[in-house]
């Protein structure tokens, strides 16, 4: 049996809102370590990998592995019914055909209970090994979101160039071009404002902005985003959770 209680419903709300436009049907695999999701979007360009570690929950028990096949659009509708500050408990039997969500308002005795029907979802699992990346950058997630949104007004593609002392984001379109250059900086008072670059090799990679527009929906999950890029391989965009992560793997675009 699964019983996982979140101190605040807002965390699961944010997670679901962050991924529901990338993938619709996905299996939430629950084990003693927490909940994991891996799913690929229909175009097979973007992969979502989620770990909500058991330490995120104020109470957590899961005696044996349980898979919850979830339609995220329906899940999002139910999860919006609870308040952000409510306790949220997920409950499922060992071989469930539904999952129960219990919201508890901390300021009153109100308890709301919803159940979501589960589905058999037959998705392929991709094996992703730990890779050495040419470059790893860490920057404020909100800045990355703004840069991508601004440049998406000009082009469908975002070019990222990384050297040891700068990160350059570029977009070239029919109506004009744009670029934003960032320099590494350490902010001791506000570490979440820092920008770091670890470089093994200079990077010049291009990605589809429509996928990046979905990735930056994870912005509210973490102050910082970690971007790991190698030339000619998928890049990893990561929002760290208190225990766990939301990762997106995005395949690059190449010059024809």
């Amino acid at each position: 049996m699964l019983e996982g209680k979140f101190e605040e419903a807002s965390l699961l709300k944010k997670v679901v809102e962050s991924i529901k436009d990338s993938v619709q049907l996905c299996n939430f695999v629950c084990s003693e370590h927490g909940i994991t999701v891996q799913a690929v979007d229909d175009s097979r360009v973007l992969l979502v990998s989620l770990l909500i570690g058991n330490e995120v929950f104020s109470d957590y028990r899961c005696d044996r592995n349980i898979t919850l096949g979830v339609d995220l659009k329906s899940f999002a509708k139910i999860i919006r019914c609870g308040g952000n500050d409510d306790y949220l408990t997920l409950i499922a039997e060992d071989s469930p055909d539904s999952v129960t969500l219990v919201f508890e308002d901390k300021n009153s005795d109100r308890i709301s209970e919803y159940s979501l029907k589960l589905m058999e979802i037959d998705n392929e699992f991709l094996k992703i090994d730990d890779m050495d990346y040419d470059s790893v950058i860490k920057m404020p997630s909100i800045d990355f979101q703004k840069i991508c949104r601004d440049l998406s007004t000009l082009s469908e593609s975002l070019q990222i160039l990384i050297t040891k002392d700068s990160i350059k984001f570029m977009a070239e379109g029919e109506t004009g071009n744009g670029s934003v250059i960032l320099k590494p900086r350490t902010d001791i008072d506000k570490p979440e404002q820092s920008i770091t670059v670890k470089l093994n090799n200079a990077v010049n990679s291009t990605f589809g902005l429509k996928y990046i527009a979905d990735i930056v929906k994870g912005t509210s999950l973490s102050n910082q985003i970690v971007i790991k890029i190698s030339n000619r391989t998928p890049a990893l965009f990561e929002y760290k959770l208190q225990s766990g992560y939301l990762r997106f793997y995005l395949a690059p675009k190449f010059e024809d």
């Binding site: 097979r44 699992f125 675009k253």
Partner: peptide, 14 residues
Amino acid sequence: GRIQFDLYQYFQRE
């Protein structure tokens, strides 16, 4: 023009 690659060109199915 640019070609969009897909993830199955890099990652193996388990």
